[in-house]
Design a protein around this nucleic acid. Structure first.
Length: 465
RNA sequence: GUCCCCUUCGUCUAGGCCGGCCUAGGACACCAGGUUUUCAUCCUGAGAACUGGGGUUCGAAUCCCCAAGGGGGCGCCA
């Protein structure tokens, strides 16, 4: 019996671009597994390539992780005993491990860089390789190394042989990815390496390094990739809808995105799709993660967002929605909070997401709302909307107010009867006249909230415009 | 080119390890009806898949082999 070991997972982003969905899902699975096992989730910044790194990208990563609720136990801002957690600050650790590796006699210098030497017979071969879209030809030294086995929780044992030496310290003196990745996972006592399947082929290099260091490799779990919603290949930061910060800017609910991401490559045993994170944490197992890549479906993502929006407590909804209204400059301090709340209550069940709020509520906060040309066109096919509105004005003026729905309906029915129309033909034009759009909340509730004076003024504006 | 991974409805998937309960279930999307005298809400319903070929077996979506297709790697990027 070996002593129980605390699980330590890590997310090791490289701040060379914005934070995309694939990275977020990798972070999420690492986080979930750590939380599930009561282990630690470490954040490590892989910023060895100084040319391509940038503070702003780093900020985006921290913010996005926090927004998604993926808190790290160790890492930048959180401290920890195996730091520092930025590779740019770990030069000493790398020098120490480089020395260890050099002592094994497996390191040699070529063209100012330091290389790791594989063991096996060597031969020079010509091989074809891909450079962008071109297939080119080159001469390389191939090593007939013994295959290594990657013990992968998700894929089983994968055999793969490395066939060429690789760089561990670049000519500019900076240590390279394979080296720092392995060194840090050793030094940080990482027990489970959960990363995208695109790293599976690299893992044989990593195992070679672990073997050279005389260290037992961690447990690997190569998770499936997220493919773009349409077209070929995996999702990349250039694809539309691939950036976490984009969903944040669009006021998606982070819990919804997170829940949706969980389901890309993993399914709860009970089949329930929308479930609280505590439930996901308790059900999450790496052995249940799928092997096949998944395509990102933004429509389903939106559905999740809508479901989470419906379930939001009222006070949370109001406060998030008001923030959006202020940002969109639809309301300011002069607008009554009671009126604002009433508007927000009215539109809530029509929203597919918080991002719809400005469009859905605009007509409640301005008398100069635009008229949607498409709706106008379809109304005009069924008759003359302006004429119908003109007929309604005197009748509505006779009412004391618009609070009584029955009184309003019967007034409208009288007009319809007078012109031998169906009452139903008057509702759509009236909605359009007072809001400028074809859909929206319950018509009567809208009229009541606007009040008789504003409604009639709006009807007049419609006739003139 | 080469190595590695994968392959159930349009998409995400259940089932596969322990072959018969699968005339393959759910979700999103789509389509059709209905309700709401407006509506992007709600309700009901329909269509929609085991990549192909061999094998093993009384019996295969489920096990084995091959092929095809998809994805990824093959950087002094990470």
């Amino acid at each position: 019996m070996s002593a129980p070991v605390t699980v330590r997972t890590r997310f090791a982003p490289s701040p060379t671009g914005f934070f995309h969905i694939g990275g977020a899902r990798t972070a999420l699975f690492n986080w979930l597994y750590a939380r599930h096992t009561g282990g630690n989730f470490v954040l490590r910044v892989e910023d060895t390539d100084k040319e391509r790194n940038n503070e702003e990208f780093l900020r985006v990563i921290y913010d996005s992780l926090q927004w998604l609720g993926l808190d790290w136990d160790e890492g930048p801002g959180a401290g920890g005993i195996v730091g520092p957690y930025k590779q740019s600050e770990r030069g000493e650790v790398y020098r120490e491990y480089l020395k260890k590796l050099q002592d094994t006699g497996r390191v040699y210098e070529k063209e100012d860089a330091l290389w790791f030497r594989l063991e096996g017979k060597r031969e020079i071969i010509r091989e074809k390789y891909k450079d962008g879209d071109n297939i080119l030809d080159r001469e390389v030294e191939r090593v007939n190394a013994a295959p290594v086995i990657v013990h992968d929780i998700i894929r089983g044992d994968v055999r793969r042989a490395e066939d060429r030496d690789f760089v561990i310290v670049r000519a500019n003196g900076e240590p390279g990815f394979h080296f720092v990745n392995v060194v840090d996972d050793i030094a940080m006592k990482i027990t489970h390496v959960i990363r995208g399947e695109d790293h599976l082929s690299n893992t044989s290099k990593h195992i070679e390094l672990y073997n050279a260091f005389g260290v037992t490799p961690p447990i690997f779990a190569h998770i499936p990739l997220i493919l773009k919603s349409d077209g070929k290949g995996k999702m990349s930061k250039r694809d539309r809808g691939s950036l976490v910060e984009e969903y944040r800017a669009r006021h998606f609910l982070p819990e919804a995105l997170r829940n949706f991401l969980c389901l890309l490559g993993w399914t709860p045993k009970n089949g329930q799709e929308i479930l609280p994170i505590s439930e996901i944490i308790s059900q999450f197992e790496l052995t249940d993660v799928h092997q096949a890549n998944a395509r990102f479906d933004e429509k389903k993502m939106c559905f999740f967002n809508q479901q989470y929006l419906r379930a939001l407590p009222e006070t949370v909804y109001y406060s998030k929605a008001k923030k959006i209204l202020r940002e969109a400059r639809l309301v300011n301090d002069a607008v009554s909070p009671v009126y604002t709340d009433a508007v927000l209550a009215l539109v809530r069940d029509k929203l597919s997401g918080l991002e719809d709020i400005p469009a859905r509520t605009g007509c409640f906060f301005s008398e100069n709302y635009p008229f949607d040309p498409k709706t106008r066109e379809s109304l005009e096919k069924k008759g003359n909307p302006a004429e119908k509105i003109r007929r309604l004005i005197p009748v509505l003026e006779e009412l004391d107010n618009l609070d009584d729905e029955a009184a309003f309906d019967s007034a409208l029915a009288r007009v319809a009867a007078e012109y031998a129309d169906k009452p139903g033909e008057y509702y759509a034009p009236l909605r359009f006249a007072v809001s400028g759009v074809g859909g929206g909340p319950h018509l009567h509730a809208m009229l009541r909230l606007l009040g008789k004076e504003r409604v009639i003024a709006r009807m007049r504006r419609f006739i003139q415009g």
